[in-house]
Amino acid sequence: MADSHDDGHHSHPPYLIIFWVLCIFTGLSWAADELQEFIPNMGVLAVIVLAIASAKALCVMLYFMHLKFERNWKYVLLAPTFILACGLPLALLPDVGVHYYDIDVPQNSIADRVAEMPEDGDAESHAPGH
């Protein structure tokens, strides 16, 4: 137990500086949102704000969570969880996220469906979705 403090973190990371850096990053995210009409498309905005979020996460992990000063067990412990965490999103991605086919769901507008309906005047009037 006693040697929990022998791994270098008494070198005292610059906590206050990290805090101000995190504040500045949060301000930049907010500014990106405010200025989004000047950003060419939403994809660029997404990249900007997610890059800022990753930088903030890195600051928190390295300094506030002391990972910068921990030994190599951190890789053994955290690498598998990151790899496994990617499993579910990757498994869902092909069929749900990036399907090549048109999806046919009730959410498509009534106007679009009306245009495709035959003009037989049947009295069907089911509300969709249930």
Binding site: L84, L88, L92, G97, V98
Partner: peptide, 21 residues
């Protein structure tokens, strides 16, 4: 916290996939 990473990545990842689709 390792299990928590997987827990929240499941939610956030599913959200992203649903949103993309």
């Amino acid at each position: 916290l390792g299990t928590e990473i997987m827990f929240f990545t499941a939610f956030i990842g599913t959200y992203l996939v649903l949103r993309l689709g």
